[in-house]
């Protein structure tokens, strides 16, 4: 897919939706890849001790997955800034089905010099799990 050009996008331009299923094993893989071995992300017992209903996904795993909506649209090198607040935990039950992350992006602002702000909406089981998930990207 051709990358979007600054002149061709408008406030309100929608990015293709991204969906991704997370299972328990994915949390273990992310723990190893990121070096975040906090046991609330793999131990039912540790999660319960921290007052959580079950094991939860790393916030950075959810954000990393969600930002693929931006990099698949604009390219990796386009991303100048990105981030989010982790508003709600993403519980990941120990099931074959796992949970589905759904990320929708929209161009929220054109900032000049080819830069646009993309606002994401990231849901799990219908609930928004990230607050102000955003990226600033530079388009050609």
């Amino acid at each position: 897919m051709a990358e979007p050009r600054y002149e061709e996008v408008a406030v309100g331009t929608r990015l293709p939706r991204l969906t991704h299923v997370l299972r328990r094993g994915d949390l273990v893989i992310y723990a190893g890849a990121s070096g975040d071995f906090n046991p609330i992300h793999w131990s039912e017992r540790a999660a319960a001790q921290a007052g959580l209903p079950t094991v939860i996904a790393h916030g950075m795993l959810t954000l990393g997955v969600a930002l693929r909506a931006v990099t698949e649209w604009a390219g990796r090198e386009a991303v100048l800034e990105c981030g989010a607040r982790f508003a709600a935990a993403v519980p990941v039950p120990d099931t074959d089905e796992g949970v589905e992350i759904v990320a929708d992006g929209i161009v929220a602002e054109k900032l000049g010099e080819g830069r646009v702000r993309v606002d994401l909406t990231v849901r799990c089981a219908g609930e928004k799990v990230l607050a102000r998930p955003r990226a600033m990207v530079r388009l050609s």
Partner: peptide, 29 residues
């Protein structure tokens, strides 16, 4: 792989070079 991203610019130097990078590139996070 851990964020489920199979974009070749993260996995394959030749693909990354073809996309204008000096080598594979790290994902934003």
């Amino acid at each position: 792989d851990a964020i489920g991203d199979d974009n070749p610019i993260y996995h394959d130097k030749e693909a990354a070079v073809a996309a204008g990078h000096p080598d594979v590139v790290a994902p934003p996070t």
